[in-house]
């Protein structure tokens, strides 16, 4: 696990452009997802094909119920597709076992959730160090890296605070620090500004933008056009399908 971590390019050396030399970070081919609740079947995704290259900043936009959250869960290996192929860095995810998937989530992906998902009993830095605990990083180094990540999101003075003692914006910044502490290649943000006031939202988006400029691939899920505007590219999703972009800003399709 730690050996793989070392293979990741060091901070700053990561390519700022997305050249086509390596395999795409994300490659979806006809991915479907069907939820079964009792006798009722709900098709959340009806064949999504999408390619995202290394270093891209892609916003996925769609109204609620369009399947955008389901898409992000599949991208983050939190859920498995019902059909189609999902290749993460060239590797077919359906061939991987639960332990390997846990390892991928731990090493390669950083999550930022709408509901922050911090553990209320742990202080800010203990929340941030969690992924490093599962990566098997030694205690002393974990604390150092967690403090550095909190410093990066501007919360060095809140490291011993529990989530309940922090504002929404601060909590989301702790969650962002947790997403970047393992130095993952891919950051998935699911409506990261959904529960925040506009100034906190701007803070968090600024952070994400900064991470992108440092070379990370970003996938941002949102339903707000002005949030999507921060991305280089916007994909629209409606009724479980990617729809062509006609006129950005109107949110229309076809």
């Amino acid at each position: 696990m730690t050996a793989e971590h070392a293979v990741l390019p060091a901070e700053g050396t990561r390519s700022h452009t997305w050249d086509a030399a390596g395999p795409p970070v994300i490659e979806l081919d006809g991915v479907t997802k069907t939820y079964r609740t009792g006798t009722l079947e709900v098709d959340a995704l009806r064949g999504v094909s999408l390619t995202i290259d290394e270093g891209e900043y892609v916003a996925v936009m769609g109204p609620s119920g369009s399947g955008k959250s389901t898409l992000m869960h599949i991208l983050g290996c939190l859920d498995v597709p019902s059909g189609g192929v999902y290749r993460l860095a060239g590797e077919d995810v359906s061939t991987l076992d639960e332990t390997r998937l846990a390892e991928i989530r731990n090493q390669r992906i950083g999550f930022v959730f709408q509901q922050f998902n911090l553990l209320p009993t742990l202080t800010a830095w203990r929340n941030v160090e969690l992924p490093l605990v599962y990566a098997g990083v030694e205690r002393h180094e974990r604390r150092e890296r967690a403090l550095a990540a909190l410093d990066r999101v501007g919360l060095s003075d809140r490291v011993e605070h529990r989530p309940g003692e922090l504002s929404g914006g601060q909590q989301q910044r702790v969650a962002t620090a947790r997403a970047l502490v393992t130095d993952p290649a891919l950051i998935l943000a699911d409506e990261p500004t959904g529960n925040l006031d506009s100034s906190s939202a701007a803070d968090v988006l600024g952070l994400i933008d900064e991470l992108h400029r440092a070379g990370r691939t970003i996938v941002l899920i949102t339903h707000e056009p002005d949030v999507a505007a921060a991305a280089q590219r916007t994909e629209r999703i409606r009724d479980g399908r990617i729809v062509p972009v006609t006129d950005p800003g109107t949110g229309g399709h076809r």
Binding site: E98, T99, A102, R105, N106, L119, Y134, R178
Partner: peptide
């Protein structure tokens, strides 16, 4: 269960 889900999302295996 939420905590378990979060820990799994952050890389905890079922064994852990």
């Amino acid at each position: 269960v939420r905590e378990i889900g979060l820990r799994k999302a952050l890389g905890a295996t079922p064994r852990v």
